[in-house]
Simulated scan of single mutants.
Amino acid sequence: MTDSTISIEQTTNEPEPSDSLKAFGAAHKAFRRRAGYTQEQYAPLVGYQPGTIASIEQGRRFPPRVFVERAEEVLDAFGVLKEVYKHATREKGLASWFRQWAELEEQAISLYTWENRFVPGLLQTEAYARTLFSERIPMFSDSEIEAQVSARLERQTLLKDRPNTLFSFIVEEHVLRRLTGGADVMREQIEHILEATEPRNVEFQVMPMSRGFHAGLNGPVQLLETPENEWFAYSEGQENGQFIVKPNTISALHMRYAKLRSQALTPEDTRSLLERIRGAL
């Protein structure tokens, strides 16, 4: 990527419609059945889990570009899937400014997350996520809450579907001590974090409250690396998000994240702290 193609995208947080994803899913399902494959038979041919394929065909998951390319080849789809994919937009539960990032997440080989507001979405329980969306201002309708919760939980399959991706999370201690949803919800949330971060490829660190100053005071940020070893960043504000590709900005964010890692508790000390917090609830 050259400097002339560098851009920063900021758009509104209006949710995208899901009809186009359902259309892609239906087209893919038709070509898969035409080829005579069950989802289980088809999965190893494209390199994705049967559950992921089912989610794509149901219109609940955005198809990664590499998936579309493999599907075209395996199913001999005459370019139809690529054409339908051009018009695909994110499901209701994911904001439009998150679309580019969510697609890259599906392919990332490294994903770093610094969060000082709430538990990162990939690690939230259903009860914790539902609390966040139920208390949102302006308020969501019941159907909007369900769509948001569903989309958030669907994204969490990344942790299981990508065992070779390195996931790093650093979270402020006060996020884990705040009784979001009440003591029972937070106890379940901390138990979930302890379980979800057991795999070797998932690292979780806490920034202790005892550290008076640290490198993440400017706000939350995420960094990811693609299979082509390109790095991108994403940051979120009150009513918008930024998808960042500018190399010098990403370099600065890398330096801050590296400093955060050295300032936070080690993963081992973090687990001990989480167990103490859980025990006190």
Rank of each mutant, 00 (worst) to 15 (best):
residue 178 R to L: 07
residue 185 V to L: 11
residue 195 E to Q: 15
residue 74 V to R: 03
residue 103 E to L: 13
residue 203 E to Y: 00
residue 123 L to Q: 01
residue 166 L to G: 07
residue 142 D to Q: 07
residue 27 A to L: 03
residue 257 Y to D: 03
residue 230 E to S: 06
residue 60 R to S: 04
residue 42 Y to N: 11
residue 146 E to Y: 02
residue 165 T to L: 01
residue 13 N to S: 09
residue 169 F to V: 03
residue 264 A to H: 10
residue 171 V to S: 04
residue 264 A to E: 09
residue 122 L to A: 03
residue 68 V to K: 08
residue 143 S to F: 03
residue 139 M to I: 03
residue 204 F to T: 08
residue 160 K to Y: 00
residue 253 L to N: 09
residue 36 G to H: 04
residue 253 L to V: 07
residue 239 E to P: 00
residue 179 L to C: 03
residue 94 L to D: 08
residue 56 I to A: 04
residue 73 E to K: 15
residue 192 H to Y: 12
residue 62 F to H: 14
residue 194 L to Q: 02
residue 151 A to V: 12
residue 76 D to L: 04
residue 101 W to E: 00
residue 16 E to S: 10
residue 19 D to P: 02
residue 19 D to C: 05
residue 32 R to K: 14
residue 171 V to I: 08
residue 84 V to D: 04
residue 59 G to I: 08
residue 212 G to Y: 07
residue 131 T to G: 02
residue 92 K to I: 00
residue 223 L to S: 00
residue 134 S to G: 11
residue 100 Q to N: 14
residue 84 V to L: 13
residue 201 N to E: 13
residue 185 V to H: 15
residue 25 G to E: 07
residue 261 R to M: 14
residue 114 W to D: 01
residue 242 Q to D: 10
residue 153 L to C: 05
residue 119 V to I: 14
residue 67 F to T: 03
residue 167 F to L: 08
residue 255 M to C: 09
residue 90 R to A: 14
residue 1 M to F: 06
residue 204 F to Y: 04
residue 118 F to V: 13
residue 13 N to Y: 12
residue 2 T to F: 11
residue 225 E to A: 00
residue 246 K to E: 13
residue 5 T to K: 13
residue 8 I to P: 02
residue 101 W to I: 00
residue 84 V to G: 08
residue 101 W to S: 01
residue 149 V to P: 04
residue 222 Q to R: 15
residue 3 D to N: 02
residue 232 F to W: 12
residue 133 F to H: 04
residue 174 H to A: 11
residue 25 G to Q: 09
residue 84 V to T: 10
residue 208 P to L: 09
residue 159 L to K: 04
residue 208 P to Q: 10
residue 116 N to Q: 15
residue 246 K to L: 02
residue 171 V to G: 02
residue 135 E to V: 07
residue 86 K to T: 01
residue 184 D to I: 14
residue 273 L to V: 06
residue 79 G to N: 13
residue 11 T to N: 11
residue 134 S to H: 11
residue 195 E to S: 15
residue 161 D to T: 10
residue 10 Q to N: 12
residue 13 N to C: 09
residue 44 P to V: 05
residue 44 P to Y: 03
residue 250 I to D: 08
residue 79 G to W: 13
residue 268 E to H: 04
residue 81 L to C: 12
residue 116 N to W: 08
residue 43 A to C: 08
residue 226 T to D: 10
residue 147 A to V: 06
residue 269 D to N: 15
residue 239 E to A: 13
residue 87 H to K: 15
residue 138 P to S: 12
residue 161 D to K: 03
residue 184 D to R: 15
residue 49 Q to M: 08
residue 244 I to C: 10
residue 105 E to A: 02
residue 109 I to G: 05
residue 86 K to I: 01
residue 192 H to V: 00
residue 144 E to T: 00
residue 67 F to V: 00
residue 20 S to N: 06
residue 213 F to Y: 15
residue 113 T to Y: 03
